[in-house]
Amino acid sequence: MKYIVKILVVAAALWVSTRVVDGITVGGESTAKEVGTLLAVALIFGVINALLKPIIKTIGCAFYVLTLGLFALVVNAGLLLLTSWIADQLTLPFEVVGFWAAFWGAIIIGVISWLLDLIFGIDD
């Protein structure tokens, strides 16, 4: 149940980022298809974060220390771009155009996910 709520939280954060950041778009002929796309992209984003982020943190530990953690923003932007590429390969209508859109989108997704995690107590 915890994982389902987490996917819903990330999907909501992705939806907000599509509304706030120019360069992040989600398509679909209907609201149901758009929601389905957001859920699929949230699942992809979660799998990518679960698999790659620990490896990147281990390898890039020095960068995290030297930049006082700001390197995490660049990593999150890269993971969002990777998510967009994978979604494109799966013919999902989700697109992130450019690094800066991914950068601001990753910040928005991170903050909204954190707030919703606090509200719903997912990480308790």
Rank of each mutant, 00 (worst) to 15 (best):
G78P: 12
A40L: 07
E95Q: 14
S84T: 05
F71I: 07
E34A: 14
L43N: 07
V75T: 01
T67R: 14
I86H: 04
G27M: 01
A40E: 05
L81Q: 09
K57C: 12
K33R: 11
N49C: 00
E34Q: 15
L92Q: 07
S30W: 01
L92C: 04
I108V: 14
I109E: 05
I48D: 04
V111Y: 05
A11K: 04
S30L: 00
W104C: 08
I107Q: 13
T58G: 15
L92F: 12
A102M: 02
F45D: 11
G60K: 02
I7C: 03
K2A: 02
P54S: 12
G36K: 07
L8C: 12
R19P: 03
F103S: 07
E95Y: 10
K53P: 02
V97M: 07
I112M: 06
S17N: 02
L81P: 08
L52I: 04
A106V: 05
D22Y: 03
L116E: 03
F71P: 06
I109W: 01
A72D: 09
S30R: 01
S84D: 14
T83G: 08
E95I: 09
W85D: 12
F94T: 05
L92D: 01
F103P: 10
A13Q: 00
V21A: 06
L115H: 03
L68E: 05
I24Y: 04
G23M: 01
W114H: 04
G78I: 13
F99L: 05
F99P: 03
P93V: 08
A32H: 07
